[in-house]
Design a binder for these strands. Sequence first.
DNA 1: CATGAATGAGCTTTCATTCAT
DNA 2: AATGAATGAAAGCTCATTCAT
Lengths: 214, 214, 214, 214
Amino acid sequence: MRKSGTQSETFNKIVEASLQLFNQEGERVITTNHIAERMNISTGKLYYHFRNKEEIINELYHRYVKGMAEQLSAALNHNNSIEAMVMAMEKTLRHIWSFRFLPKSLPSLFCVNPQLEEEHQQLSRGQLNSKLGQLFASLREQGMLLVDDQQLAHLVQHFQMVQTGWVNTIKQNASAAELDKLIQSGCRSLMFLLAPYVSPRFQSPFERVFSRYA
Amino acid sequence: MRKSGTQSETFNKIVEASLQLFNQEGERVITTNHIAERMNISTGKLYYHFRNKEEIINELYHRYVKGMAEQLSAALNHNNSIEAMVMAMEKTLRHIWSFRFLPKSLPSLFCVNPQLEEEHQQLSRGQLNSKLGQLFASLREQGMLLVDDQQLAHLVQHFQMVQTGWVNTIKQNASAAELDKLIQSGCRSLMFLLAPYVSPRFQSPFERVFSRYA
Amino acid sequence: MRKSGTQSETFNKIVEASLQLFNQEGERVITTNHIAERMNISTGKLYYHFRNKEEIINELYHRYVKGMAEQLSAALNHNNSIEAMVMAMEKTLRHIWSFRFLPKSLPSLFCVNPQLEEEHQQLSRGQLNSKLGQLFASLREQGMLLVDDQQLAHLVQHFQMVQTGWVNTIKQNASAAELDKLIQSGCRSLMFLLAPYVSPRFQSPFERVFSRYA
Amino acid sequence: MRKSGTQSETFNKIVEASLQLFNQEGERVITTNHIAERMNISTGKLYYHFRNKEEIINELYHRYVKGMAEQLSAALNHNNSIEAMVMAMEKTLRHIWSFRFLPKSLPSLFCVNPQLEEEHQQLSRGQLNSKLGQLFASLREQGMLLVDDQQLAHLVQHFQMVQTGWVNTIKQNASAAELDKLIQSGCRSLMFLLAPYVSPRFQSPFERVFSRYA
DNA sequence: CATGAATGAGCTTTCATTCAT
DNA sequence: AATGAATGAAAGCTCATTCAT
């Protein structure tokens, strides 16, 4: 049906409407009918573009991962300053927030969609994980972080867990102002994870940035 | 109908069967029909004891929280040795594991059952959180942890996030042997969170225990 | 089970509780469970006294008819004064009101309980009807009403229809004060049916009573 | 889903099948499943067109009221002859008969569907009532009826009550022949209500028609 | 491409009634 | 007499998905 390369405008609109509804109402309560209704299109049209609801979620998941990978790549390219690092963190949290239904729903989706679980293993726990590992390794090389390989692996894992944990602490629909605050405190939370391993040389700039997020 | 105080045998059996099915298959795909069928009882019987599926989940959630609180209380009473602490961690992870459907499903349940979300705020993010805070504070008093109040608050939060994150990394049905290993690595992961704040005096026993979990 | 002669206290209490609930909430939404719950007895006890819900309704129907018959007999014994007639009307309307669920539910019950329909034919459209006919005939003999037999039959029918129609115009739960007013206007309505046939001799006392109900 | 304005063929067929079943078997015992089964359609199809059984009943109620209003309007336009009046009565009774489940079920439905009760207040006791009042008023102007305003109001009310009472006296499934007779006697019954107020000028034509219905 | 009516399996829930105790 | 847990048929309704047009 859909040509996998070209993503028609409708395709994109469906994905975006779904994202919005999933985030706002919860993926679990949003049916394909809701999505079509919200978009003022027929269910048939929706099913022309997607074989089923799962496929929409898959697409969203891929977009989520892609965005995460991009943030990480960007961070890798600006890994020389702590400020830049934290900016990247902020952008990452914002990105996670914009796909917030995923951390909430993924664990419960796996029993329905095992293929998604596998992909999640490969992408999040695989690709993204190793990218984050690279980032931390480069920070180590820069002398920013003092960690051995084991510690680095733990940091990576915890970093991801705290990111996920962070979204789940937030209520479904926060205002823009609230969100800003929450992103700040999320960054602080993540920085706190790294704090013990920041090298003395970078201690003071780190503290400076950290205190800015108080 | 059912007296809410007395918990009949059937009541308990329904709760236990539900827990097993939820853990094994995922709460999302288990219907009240499945539960009744598995137990070889009529749906009517199930609905005589519970108004609906939500109520079963609520009951399970309360049992989960109760167990967590008990572990924390026990830990508070044996907070003098690192060994004891880690034993408590193990037991806690085992307990979480036995209710593993909850960390997976809770976030997606909130949109369906907002009352549960509120309770979660009060119980997990409230009661359990402060209990864990007390535990860490007592460790600080014992001279085990060197942390200021802010750090303590972060530690509490991260500790919980890593616990939750840990269950979600595990595939639905792990064998007993796999589980043991996973519990070990979970403990290591949690210890790693505390590691930077362990006081020099307790460094060496901490290391000893830590390495045992390698 | 129940000895048909002796009506135990429980039996009566069930009937009375049912009547109250049927009147207040509507027979259609009141289940046997509701009745037992309201009475703080077990469903088993209820079913010891009544084979089923139908039987409770039958009993209520019989009490209703019995009451109606009593009112009519009383009226027959005091048929010399218009005042007495209207007093009887009032009492009758009050009685109908106290069984108000019946006129509302009977027509819809017949498809479920055809035996009840038959009884209704015999009792209401039979026994009560002829009693009311007798009453009107005696009024004719007294010179109060000037009607031929055909007119009398019509009057009887209309009288019953207006009584029934009257209850159905009233909302389920009227206050005592409202009820008093409604009874007044119900009497007026019934008197109006008879008005054209009141003999000149009784015109003025009739008018006097009628105007009192304005 | 369904556009509320356009009434598709299926929509109409569902309404008609429901009416037939409700009339024949009683609304109370007819479920949406029965309707779908009878029509050889899926329950899903039925629920695509109606949110629930209530909505079907609402639709039927509106059709009933619309028909009543039409009969009354027609009567108003041909109010010069008694013959025409009685023809209108006949048509009205036939219409009521074709919706006979309504007078039987409405009173018992109100406790389940309070919105319907409100509509009934506004439509039957409001709109239809005043239309009938207008009709009688125009008959008064024509010199056919001699009534004051109070009497007119009572007549209106009684007329409606007798119409309703009439349907309820008839057993569920009367043959066409029986029905014709019943309609005749219904008309007679209604005429009898008016009889005392027919002006001398119209007495003889009235009697003529009345006797024809004997 | 698009429509939207239709499907139908299956979910949650109710309730009159039974029955072992 | 009484209990109250249990039954089970059946009701109302949903929703992912299909398919004729």
